[in-house]
Each structure stands twice: as structure tokens, then as C-alpha cells.
Amino acid sequence: MRYMLLFHYAEEARESIGEEAMAAGMRAFASYTATLEQAGVLVSGQVLRPSTNATTLTLVDGEPRIQDGPFADTREQLGGVVIIDVPHLDAALEWARQAPPLSWGSVEIRPGAVHTEAGVWVPS
């Protein structure tokens, strides 16, 4: 079954984090994804650009409204995702426990559905 690990953490400028901490975080992510890959569970991953690059589409009175930036007004933003293919939620939780963003934010685990049958989403 596929699970998406969504990494939420406070956005900070590279300068405020510091080069040493930034490099350590990048090494931690590289090690984590290499471990997922070696275990054969990594489907894909994506680091997201800062939320200031986001565009959000909503409907207001039936009309589309385009808003610069993320929809959520919060200190933490979605910073990246990893999709893994594991047998069950407990396995997904174990991989999420190893995710570097858990040290500075949260990891949301959400099961995926990749297709529909008769209009109903079917788990991957």
C-alpha cells in the first residue's frame, strides 16, 4: 500500500538557519532517502520550494479565485513529501519516525489511492 509522508515545518530563511545546520539537514535527508531506496520502499519524493512560491485556487461564490501563497495561514508549511510503498500503516509509521523533519516539525502519514473503480477511490 502506498503512503505519503508529508513533512510540515516552520519556514526559515537559509541565513537564519545557518550554513552548517542547512548542510546537516541536507545530509540527513540524503541519508534518509538513500535508506528508503535501499529498502525498496521509496516510490518518489519531492522537496517543495518556499510557500511564497505557492499559488492557491479556490472558489468564491462559484467563481475561481487565485491567491498568491499558501491557503493555510500558519507558521508551519508543507515542505516536502515522500511516497513509500509498504505493507501496512505500522510500517509507514516506522519510516515516518526516521524522517529528519520529525526533529523540527511534524510528519503526516496519509494512505494513497491511485485509481478509481466505478467512481470510488481504491487504495494503492
Rank of each mutant, 00 (worst) to 15 (best):
H88R: 12
R97T: 11
A39S: 15
R65E: 14
E76I: 00
L59G: 02
R75L: 08
E15P: 04
S124E: 10
T74G: 10
Y9N: 07
W104Y: 14
V86K: 03
Q98I: 09
E12K: 08
S106D: 09
T33A: 08
R110T: 10
G112Q: 03
Y3R: 01
P87L: 13
H8L: 11
L59W: 09
F7K: 01
V81F: 14
P87T: 11
Q46K: 11
R2W: 07
L59C: 03
A92V: 05
A28G: 08
G40R: 05
A118W: 01
R49L: 14
A23W: 00
W121L: 12
E11S: 04
A34G: 13
V43A: 07
M26Y: 06
P50Y: 01
R49G: 13
I84P: 00
G18D: 06
R27K: 15
E12F: 00
Q77G: 05
G40Y: 00
A23F: 05
S31C: 12
G45A: 13
L78H: 07
G69E: 04
E37Q: 14
Q38E: 15
S44Y: 02
E19V: 07
E12C: 10
R110G: 13
A118V: 02
G62K: 11
A30W: 09
H8R: 13
R110N: 07
R65Y: 03
L78F: 07
E20P: 00
W104K: 06
L42Q: 03
E63C: 04
A54D: 11
V81E: 02
